[in-house]
Amino acid sequence: MSSVALAILVLAILALIFGVILGFAAVRFKVEGDPIVDQIDALLPQTQCGQCGHPGCRPYAEGIAAGEAINKCPPGGQTTIDQLAELLNVDSIPLDSEHGVEDVRKIAYIREDECIGCTKCIQACPVDAILGAAKQMHTVIVDECTGCDLCVEPCPVDCIDMLPVATTTLNWKWPEPPQTNNLIATDRQPRFEENPS
């Protein structure tokens, strides 16, 4: 009888010890992860264009965290969708064309001699990228503009153009070398030309 009691006692003590250790570990090594919304928000392009149907990227991040589809952000495009899929551990899906299509990066330019200084674009710009005061011509700060398009519509004289960002020697990127060999699953396309030389 006493041996049974002893066994129970030993087990109980062991359980207690491990419980304390585990509890301590849980407190001590707690991972202070970013809340998921912050992590999602960090992946979104922050163009703040609202094409996803939300008034900005953060609300959409909250939406995704609440279970919304991840393919509603055209400025981010497939890259962002892939990153989101990886973060959330779901399958990647193509961009929902209902919200727009992927486009080259653009930046707003105000034709300054036509600007009437109505300040409407300033009010529309989500990142305060437009400089100017009432009745003065306005200018876009190129480095701040996210290319969200929101300032184009309100302009009463249509003097805002969205122009693609020009490639200069400063932002030029090396092209990807041609892929010559490929792995099994995808390589049945006749992608090979014999080298003519």
Binding site: D187, R188, R191, F192
Partner: peptide, 8 residues
């Protein structure tokens, strides 16, 4: 079968 240039 893999559609690769055989001679090369």
């Amino acid at each position: 079968m893999r559609g690769l240039p055989i001679s090369r």
